[in-house]
Amino acid sequence: MTADDHLSGPVAVLANPAAGRGRHRALLPGLLDALAGAGRPVRLLAASSPADAEAACRTAVADGAGALVAIGGDGTVHRAVQAIAGTDVPFGPIPAGTGNDFALDTGFPADPREAANVIASALREGRSRSVDLARMVGADGTERWYGAVLAAGFDAIVNERANRMRWPRGPRRYDLAIVVELARLRPRRYTLRLDGVPHELDAVLVAVGNCPTYGGGMRICPDADPTDGLLDVVVAGRVNRRTLVRVKPRIYQGTHVSHPLVTSYRARTVELAADGITTYADGERSLTLPVTISAVPGALRLLR
């Protein structure tokens, strides 16, 4: 695809220095230099919190940014996407986080420097390609977008538990949250409407994917394709603790979908309801169920 007039404006860059536990922090000057090699002004956005980051991206787009680049993980990408979904402003994710699922699933190199060079080349050549995003709307009308996967079951519950915990620090907090929620594991009643067709089911895990992976490479929706205009829904039904522990490692290869208690669906619009579930989109805390999720074809232009 040939880019339009937006590509003549400055390149706004959202960088999360804490992404990936800070291991790529020293790369930032070099990444900015690589982007500047496209011959366009590069403006680093100031943000001290996720909400600030999202607001800074929206302001940059409103002020005429020619492109938006996010340096970080899926959380950083998620904030940037809120500002550019459905616009003509092209986007480049540079994977530098703990989880880089959206960038890798849409074909960007895993190495941040290589990804920056790909984006700079696309800027120079005026090249971009469109991919889908998922748009979700809550019961109160709140709208959010995501690029990778929405978790609305066990994984979302674990994230919610971990975020409420003050101890321990780091990844051990998430591990402890898994142990606690495994002990409390029970199927929940979900109401699922797929393109208007209702399904009532009991499940412990529900994921709605625009892309295949979440959680740093777990192929929860292995057949999801961000260019097909559809959402993939993967449901693990009345699974007990032992079975969940046994099946969960298979998610990295995507082979869990062959288990008899796992069901896959595909739809353009997914209405999802259950009591007491706060969803996580791209790994970020998002809307409380019920939500309506729609695949929006070509909602994002990628600098590739």
Rank of each mutant, 00 (worst) to 15 (best):
T2K: 13
T2N: 12
A3V: 03
D5L: 14
P10Y: 11
A18R: 14
R23S: 13
A26R: 15
L27A: 15
G30I: 09
L35N: 00
L35K: 00
A38T: 00
L45A: 03
S49E: 01
D52R: 01
C57F: 01
D63Q: 14
A80N: 05
G86P: 10
D88L: 14
P90G: 02
G92L: 04
D101P: 08
A103M: 03
A110K: 05
A110Y: 02
P112C: 07
A116D: 07
A120M: 08
A120H: 03
L133A: 09
A134P: 06
A134W: 07
W145Q: 03
V149N: 02
A151S: 14
G153F: 10
F154W: 07
I157V: 15
W167P: 03
G170I: 06
G170R: 07
G170Q: 05
Y174Q: 10
E181D: 14
P187M: 09
Y190F: 15
T191S: 15
P198Y: 09
P198F: 08
D202S: 14
L205T: 10
N210D: 08
N210F: 09
T213N: 12
G215H: 04
G216L: 12
P222E: 05
P222N: 08
D223A: 15
A224G: 01
D225P: 00
D225Q: 02
G229S: 09
V233Y: 04
V235I: 12
R238H: 10
R238K: 13
T243I: 11
V245F: 05
T255S: 15
L261I: 11
R266L: 08
R268Q: 14
L272D: 09
L272P: 11
G276K: 07
I277N: 11
A281T: 06
P290G: 11
A295S: 15
L300E: 01
